[in-house]
Structures are given as structure tokens and as C-alpha cells.
Amino acid sequence: MSLINVERIKLFSTRSPWWCMIIAAALSIGLAALATGLASGADEARVTPAMSQFGVNLGQMVIMVMAALAVTTEYRFGTIRTSFQAVPQRVALLLNKTVVVAGLAALVGLVASFGSWAVGYLLAGTADMAIDTSAEWRLIGGQALVYGIAAIFAVAVGILIRQSAGAIAILILWPLLVESLLPLIPRIGDDLQKWSPFTNANQFINGGQDMGLAGAEAAGANTGLSPWWALAYFAAWGVALLVIALFTASKRDA
């Protein structure tokens, strides 16, 4: 418990995590306002809960930046050495950091997804925005899980890369560009994409959802896994990456 407290003090005693969390929620909700509020007339009735969640993806990028920075700034300012000096059990220390950061990310995910849905509910009055199917509950409530796992990814990459710019570049380019460009590779490209982590995170959220006005292709690539298996697959990647990172950090000179 004391190590959870350590990471809580560290995170909340500087300003940048606050900014990241506010921006993540604001981006999500702001985009939801645009996606649902600009539809009018007959279009308005075709707005669905899934359409309110497009921005939540963007907020997830910001939360990953926050999670990576929670590690890389420690390397940048040398406080990682002070940390390892105070707690030589490095794996325990970094695991607690991961728990705090991922927990916070999940909380922001909850605010972002329900906030975005609420904005859609208010702005698209004629649409059926009620959350009444299990798929819709997964869509809105599941964002918290995706945020949490994405934060684990980011912490792991931060530990491995140790530099803010490099870690952030990887965390932004990988889900946004690398995974979506994979199908361009002949023969194996489609399979590679099916088995990439963030595409599966998307499958968990958007698989089997009614995209309404945005059209079915807005749901992204179908990986063929059922939503909950897709989430498990995404989580396995995060955990595997974290294990490698923790192992590296405990062997490496600080």
C-alpha cells in the first residue's frame, strides 16, 4: 500500500498529469459534440451511441502520453535513481506505478466515454441514444478497460525507451499509423493487422456496433475475434510488454 501512495504523491505533485487528464476528457467530449451535434433533421435520428465515442480514441492517445511521461520524466530528471535508492525492489516499485497510472487512466476513460455519450444524448435529441443492449454497455463501459490496458502499454514502452520523445512517437505511430498501414503489405498484411493489439482493442469496442450515420466502415477492421476475446488478446500484449519492461529494468543499470 505504501508504494501505491508513493506513486500517487509523485503523480499528483506535478501539473502535467492533470493537464493530460483534462485534455483527454475534453477532447473526447468535444469530438462527441461535433459528431452528434452537427447532424440535423433526418440525419439526427440516425446518430447512434457508437458515434459519440469516436473522440474517446483520441483521448486514449493523450492518456498514453501521460502514462509514458510518468516513467520517462523520472529518467529525464534522474528521480528514477532516487526511487530505486529508496525502493531497491524495482519490480514492486514499477508494478505499483503501473497500477496507479492504469487505474487513473481507467477512471479518465470512464469520464470520457460516459461524458461523450451524455453530450450525444443531449445534442441528438431525436436519436435513440439509450444504453440498453449489452453491446452498448460494452461500448461505453468498456472504454475504461481499454484506457487502463493502453496505459500499461505506455508505461512498459516508457520503461523500455526511457526517453519521452521516443516513447511518445512509438505510442502514437503504432496504433494510428503502423496498424492501419499493415494491410498494404501483400499476402500477409491482412493477417498481421488481425493480430495487432490496438486493432483488437478497437474490435472490442466497435465490434458488432451500429455505426448509424457514420456507416459500417467506421467500425474499422474486423479481426474475427469475439469482442471479449479481442480484449483479452489486447491485454495479453500489454502484460507481455510489461513483463519484458520490468525484467529489463531490474537487470539494467539505473
Binding site: S2, N5, I9, S13, T14, T79, L93
Partner: peptide
């Protein structure tokens, strides 16, 4: 080896907690 945006008290507080 101190975060420049953290106060001395916060820095020592997390160390004490650890």
C-alpha cells in the same frame, strides 16, 4: 535528481512514504 516542478515537501513526502 529532483523533478523541477515538484516542491521540496512533495519530493521528501514520497520518499518518506516509500
Amino acid at each position: 535528481w529532483v523533478h523541477p516542478n515538484r516542491s521540496a515537501r512533495a519530493h521528501l513526502s514520497w520518499m518518506a512514504a516509500s
